[in-house]
């Protein structure tokens, strides 16, 4: 939680106009299609980086379903976020293969290097660190993924170096 109440984000009631237009554009492409909630949410999150409440309301309006239903979908799936993330998203794999190959030590090293808690964003806003269940590169365990780039065969030291130099 931010200590000073003066540095709060802009009120959620008045979203940037550019962002609003972007959400509308996504909605326009999906209008009339059934089962569009998840792809729309995915695209909106892709453009905005997260799903602000106003966007959820706009999506509900656009797809003509209750906002509660959209919110229900958002909170069910691990992919969706209600809070903004840092500039880079670092996913640390804790799948079975990575777990038995030292994922706990790797994630400890990364969190220590970035001075951040799991699931949180660094103070400078550069990294958000998340744990995931498997990145599908199990034979290179332990594995992490930063944005779209995957790094395998890590040791705590290698992982530390990667986030430091990224």
């Amino acid at each position: 939680m931010s200590k000073s109440s003066k540095t709060r984000l802009p009120r959620q009631g008045d979203p940037p106009l550019g962002d609003q237009a972007r959400v509308e554009r996504v909605l326009a492409r999906y209008s009339g299609r059934i089962g569009a909630v998840i792809p729309v949410l995915q695209e909106v999150q892709e453009t905005l980086g997260y799903l602000p409440i106003w966007a959820i309301q706009a999506i509900a309006l656009g797809l003509e379903i209750p906002a509660s239903q959209v919110y229900g979908v958002v909170t069910f799936y691990a992919q969706f976020r209600l809070k903004p993330i840092g500039k880079h998203l670092c996913k640390v794999c804790h799948g079975t293969a990575c777990h038995v190959s030292g994922a706990t030590e790797v994630s400890g090293a990364i969190l220590e290097q970035l001075r951040v808690l799991e699931g949180a964003t660094t103070e400078d806003g550069k990294f958000t660190v998340e744990s995931v269940a498997c990145l599908g590169c199990c034979s290179l365990a332990p594995v992490i993924m930063i944005d779209q780039e995957t790094f395998g065969r890590l040791s705590p030291d290698k992982a530390r170096k990667i986030v430091k130099e990224f």
Binding site: H94, T96, A97, G136
Partner: peptide
């Protein structure tokens, strides 16, 4: 969906 962590056949 291949959710089983530690498996990557389908991928």
């Amino acid at each position: 969906d291949e959710g089983d962590p530690g498996a990557f056949m389908d991928r």
